[in-house]
């Protein structure tokens, strides 16, 4: 089967410093993967480099067997919440509808169909009642749910989510984890950069452990082993001490 996402020899640097070194990864369609690793391991960088948002030093990335630039309409990227200015003058529905902009194409404005779709996706995350609220009035968890709804509006086959559970309330976390399982049930491929090692085992079926290099990749029970984790988390620290 063609992988949903296939990464070969990916290397990314910030200046002289390597951020990702020679990464090879395949993600099967319908898999639900957590990307874990210490701070500065290159987790967010991996998503950005895959999407071509950062320059690669080397490497190729294929989505569904095609070059990534030709597959962007099948991919939804959810950036970290902090990536945008939440004081922007707009409301929840408007942000969710942004997920439909690319399919609309140049010049065309969103209409009734896009509005209905956005409301439906907001409802899936339990925030349809907030649709007319200014985004400056949202809690962190609500902001995150707006971003997830925007990704659903895109109607993609592959989700790349950057820390969607960082600093959110319990309800949002449950809603989001529920959503990931539903998406997996629909055959979607979901890749989540994740910081909380506790929940990885309960929700995800695969895990990728990064620390600039690829440390481990496989079923959750193999990767989330103390001995393996120590290699990524403490191995990195030892190098710093030396």
């Amino acid at each position: 089967m063609t992988p949903a996402l296939s990464i070969r020899d990916l290397t990314v640097t910030y200046g002289e410093k390597p951020a990702l070194w020679d990464i090879d990864l395949d993600f099967e369609p319908g898999s639900l993967t957590a990307v874990v690793g210490p701070n500065g391991a290159g987790k967010s960088t991996l998503l950005k480099a895959v999407l071509g948002l950062l320059p690669k030093v080397a490497g190729t990335v294929l989505a569904f067997g095609a070059p990534i630039a030709d597959s962007l309409d099948r991919i939804a990227y959810v950036p970290q919440r902090s990536a945008v200015d939440w004081d922007f003058p707009t409301d929840v529905l408007d942000v969710a509808m942004m997920g439909a902009y690319r399919k609309l194409g140049w010049f065309r404005r969103p209409g009734a169909a896009e509005r209905a779709k956005a409301l439906e996706c907001l409802d899936r995350l339990g925030i349809a009642d907030l649709s007319r609220r200014q985004i400056s009035q949202l809690s962190g968890g609500q902001q995150q749910r707006v971003f997830l709804a925007r990704a659903l509006v895109q109607d993609p086959d592959l989700f790349l989510l950057d820390e969607p559970l960082a600093g959110v309330d319990v309800t949002t976390e449950e809603r989001a984890l529920d959503l990931f399982r539903q998406l997996q049930g629909q055959g979607k491929t979901v890749i989540v950069v994740h910081h909380d090692l506790e929940t990885v085992r309960d929700v995800f079926d695969r895990a990728v452990l990064l620390n600039v290099r690829l440390v481990a990749n496989g079923p959750v029970r193999d990767v989330m082993e103390p001995a393996v984790l120590r290699k990524a988390y403490l191995g990195g620290r030892d190098q710093v001490v030396c």
């Binding site: 962007l72 990227y77 950036p79 990536a83 942000v95 942004m98 925007r150």
Partner: peptide, 16 residues
Amino acid sequence: KEFKLLSFDPVFAKST
């Protein structure tokens, strides 16, 4: 619509 997206979330705009 394009300028709104660019001003609010340029990274997302590029990713789509």
